[in-house]
Computed example of a mutant assay.
Amino acid sequence: MIDTAILLAAGEGSRLRSAAPFKPLCTVGGRSLVDHAITGLAQAGMARVVVVLGYGAEQIEASLGGRSWPLAVETVRVEDYRQPNGVSVLAAERHVAGAPALLAMCDHLVDPALYRRMAEAGEAVTGARLGIDRRLDSDWIDLDDVTRVQTADGRIVAIGKGLHPYDCFDTGVFAVGPALFASLRALAAPSLTEGMRALARDGDAWVTDCSDLDWIDVDDQWALDKAEAWLGTITVG
């Protein structure tokens, strides 16, 4: 099973600025998003997490360093947090040294069982394996913001926001291997979606169904309100 995670937490999070100056420190259910993510990864069996920081890096590092964690926590910074999120993924590459890693988003509240499922499913991954959700009528999905996915025979056919047709959603949890990093390095503006499209063309972008497990992307006040209400009905982190 994969035991190292990469946690992306570099973005500016401007749509949540009214709730917190730095998105990873935005609280949901009395705990910060980064706390939920790191604790959930530990519960899923991760031994180590590399947190990629950008906007507010000093303040978030101080928060992380101010407490003990149930797994090893390392941080790395991107030079420019305004660049596409693939730059954040590449910033963590040397920390995983070619081994498969779990890749997660700091602003997603995720059932630890989803992290674990992806860590188990992606143990031998070379490109990428994405956790997907086929609940197309979910009331916690923002259709204008979620990344949509079209699949066939266990592989990704197409991926992107506003995609039509589509048969599932991107949960923001991946198992990733060396080929994803290589595909990102080949891009002038490396976004994770474009990297996944390149892998899909090569037949090395796989999916694992996680439709029975809960997650929510906390991107704006609407989602934060949903998450606050929803958190009381599930066990996350």
Rank of each mutant, 00 (worst) to 15 (best):
I2P: 00
D3N: 13
T4G: 08
A5C: 05
L7S: 06
L7D: 05
A9C: 14
A10F: 05
E12N: 07
G13T: 02
L16G: 06
L16P: 07
S18L: 11
A20D: 06
K23D: 07
T27M: 14
L33N: 02
V34Y: 00
V34Q: 00
I38R: 00
Q43W: 01
M46Y: 00
A47P: 00
R48M: 10
R48G: 10
R48Q: 14
V52Y: 07
L53D: 03
L53A: 11
G54H: 04
G54K: 03
Y55R: 12
G56H: 12
G56K: 09
A57I: 02
A62H: 07
A62F: 02
S63E: 15
L64A: 01
G65Y: 03
V76D: 02
R77T: 10
R77E: 12
E79H: 05
E79P: 00
E79Y: 00
R82S: 15
V87W: 08
L90R: 12
A92R: 13
E93W: 06
V96H: 09
V96Y: 11
V96F: 10
A99Y: 04
H108Q: 05
V110C: 14
A113G: 03
Y115P: 03
R117Y: 04
E120N: 07
E120M: 11
E123R: 11
E123L: 05
A124V: 02
A124F: 05
V125E: 11
A128H: 01
A128M: 12
L130Y: 01
L130Q: 04
I132F: 12
T147K: 01
T151A: 10
T151F: 14
I159R: 03
G162D: 06
H164C: 10
D167Q: 06
F169E: 02
F169G: 03
D170S: 07
G172Q: 07
G177L: 13
P178G: 04
L180P: 07
F181I: 07
A186K: 12
P190Y: 13
T193Q: 12
R197Y: 05
L199T: 10
D204Q: 13
W206T: 08
V207P: 08
D214I: 01
W215M: 06
K226V: 06
E228A: 13
W230K: 02
G232Q: 13
